[in-house]
Structures are given as C-alpha cells and as structure tokens.
Design a protein around this nucleic acid. Structure first.
Lengths: 125, 125
DNA sequence: GAGATATGCAACTCGCTGATTGCCTTGACG
DNA sequence: CGTCAAGGCAATCAGCGAGTTGCATATCTC
C-alpha cells in the first residue's frame, strides 16, 4: 500500500509553504523581489515590528533557501532566490493535473453507468 | 509612503500558504487530488494520527476554501477545490516577474556605470 | 578615538496549533 | 430494536512561532 509512504515531493514542499505562510515574510519577499538585494535595516524600516523580529523572518527565509545573505561591511544584505519558488510551482501543477485525471475517471464511471467506485492503482479502502 | 500599505494579493495568499504548510494537510490534498472526493474515515485510515486530528486538518482546508464538504448519509465527503490553487500560482508568478525586472534594472545600472541605486516606481527607502 | 549605525545573542512572554481522549449523536442494517 | 460505523463536541496539553527587550559587537565616519 504505497499511499502510506509519503511522496518526497511533498516533504520538500511543506517547509517552503511554511516559510511563505507568514504575512510579514510575504511582504519581505515582495520587497526583495521588486527592489533587489537589501540590508536588514532597510527592510525593517517599513515594518511595524522590531528589527530583531525582521531578522528572524529573514533567517527563516534563508533556512529554506528562499533567500541568501552576505556580509558587506557592517551590513547584511539579503537577496531573493526565486528559483526555489519553482518547487512550489511544480507541486501545484502536479496537484492540479492529478485532480483533472481523477475527474476524468469519475466521469468515465458515470457514463459507463457504473454505480460503485473502482480502483486503478491498487488502492484498498 | 505606499510601501507600508499591504498589497491585498499577499493578504489573500498568506492563509493559503498557511493551509498548505502542514505535511499532513499536504498528504490529504494529495489523496483528494488523485482519488477524488472521500469521506473522513477513508482519509484518516492511512494516517498515523487520530480521526479527530484529521477532521481538524480537513476543516482547515475548508476554511480557506481549498476543499468543500457535503453530508451524505452518515458520511461527510470532502472534495478538493483546485481552482483555489491558482491564487497561489499567480502569486508565485508575480514574484518571479518582479524579480526579473529588478535584475534588469540592476544590470542596467552596472552597465551604465552608475554607482548608487535609483528608484523608478516612486518607492522610497 | 568618539559617536553613530547595523547587527548579533540570549532570555522571556504569549497565543496559536497539532493532537489526544472521553463521551454523545446520528445513520445504516440485520 | 440492538448494534456497529461515521462523525461531532469539548476539554486539555505540549510545543512552536512571532515578537519584545536588554546588552554586547563590529563598522564607518569625523
């Protein structure tokens, strides 16, 4: 029963979703995406929370490789890594495709006049 | 200073990311996407947690309209709503596009030999 | 060197979240 | 009608996550 085993793609996507699940972090991602690399202080300036809180958010983004940081003098510059977003992108596409196929199968059953449900991948309920 | 105001797109995307940020919920989404509508009991069977926990996850998905539920006899059938995923999809695309434009601007500055940064969309830092 | 700027570190609070457990209601069925 | 299966409700709990505050460091700039 393969459905019990977790698909590695999902284990990979979850932390990314988590990193993007905070409004503050989304705003940071937004700013970094439209203004390019910025130091912590610049990013913290427009936000209603403390600089330390902003730092933690940025580190959270860095932890999942959605951003990188480099030291530049006394500043720490954060830069977005949008390539990482493609993982999430692909994940969403896959879910949509699977759903479409599931719909097709259900439709097929209806048109064939089949009352119950059938399994095509060895699933047992 | 418009940068302080939150973009409604992000306020909309954050809860969706949050709903997808849990591994268990991702697995539920997975199963619903590949097997179509299912009752709680069927979904709970393959998971190592209690039925109540599964119910909560499903309700969480329903709260952000990633799923719908309907009563059918003594069962409660949950069904995925993949259209909602397009919101996240569009959000990711937008971020990527903004980043590309930011990159172009930065490159332009370098090639022009400009030392400092300029703003082209009325943004103030 | 002095003062200001940009961070780093650590301890602590507090509310939310994922999960559990016990018990009750409702529908299906022989 | 008795019983089993599918859920619903409510109380409870431990852990984590977001934010704060205070203090120490490291860089610039004069």
């Amino acid at each position: 029963m393969p459905s019990t085993a977790a698909d590695p793609r999902f284990e990979q996507a979850a932390p990314l979703f988590a990193a993007l699940s905070d409004p503050t972090r989304l705003r940071l991602v937004e700013r970094l995406s439209q203004e390019g690399p910025l130091p912590i202080s610049a990013l913290a300036q427009d936000l209603p929370i403390s600089r330390q809180a902003v730092t933690k958010h940025l580190v959270a983004l860095e932890d999942v490789d959605l951003a990188t940081s480099r030291r530049e003098g006394r500043e720490r510059i954060f830069e977005l890594r949008p390539e990482r977003l493609s993982i999430v992108h692909r994940y969403l596409d896959q879910i949509s495709r699977q759903w479409d196929r599931a719909l097709d199968r259900l439709r097929a059953h209806v048109e064939t006049g089949v009352g119950g449900l059938e399994r095509q991948d060895g699933e047992e309920v």
